[in-house]
């Protein structure tokens, strides 16, 4: 139900580097789960609105007032790599 090519596409979107074995496993398992999820098609939801939030809340705002910044050393305390004040990452392309 799910092809290896689809698994590879989804892995690319998810930034996951999967082994061939993992690809086969996920293809099979995701296929089974999606097949199970297929039972939702039994329900006619044509006129049913989606529920993205259960709480009937709207318009939650904050005022435009400045709060505390993190001190630089705290902001960078978990950096895997840094150069001066910057986080450092390998080349992008």
């Amino acid at each position: 139900m799910i092809t290896i090519a689809e698994v590879e596409h989804v892995a690319l979107l998810s930034r996951l580097d999967l082994s061939d074995e993992e690809k086969r496993m996920y293809a099979e398992q995701l296929g089974a789960i999606l097949e199970y999820a297929g039972m939702l098609d039994e329900l006619d939801t044509g006129n049913i609105p989606p529920t993205a939030h259960v709480l009937p809340l709207n318009n939650v705002f904050r005022e435009d007032r400045e709060g505390e910044h993190l001190p630089l050393e705290k902001a960078m305390q978990n950096a895997p790599d840094r150069e001066g004040n910057f986080f450092k990452v390998p080349r992008i392309v």
Binding site: L16, D17, L18, I92
Partner: peptide
């Protein structure tokens, strides 16, 4: 792997860093 948490060693570029770090 950009600003906190585990980062794979010797990533050759950003996409490689993402994929292998997460995997």
């Amino acid at each position: 792997g950009v600003s906190y948490g585990y980062r794979v060693e010797d990533p050759k570029d950003v996409v490689d860093m993402y994929s292998r770090t997460r995997s």
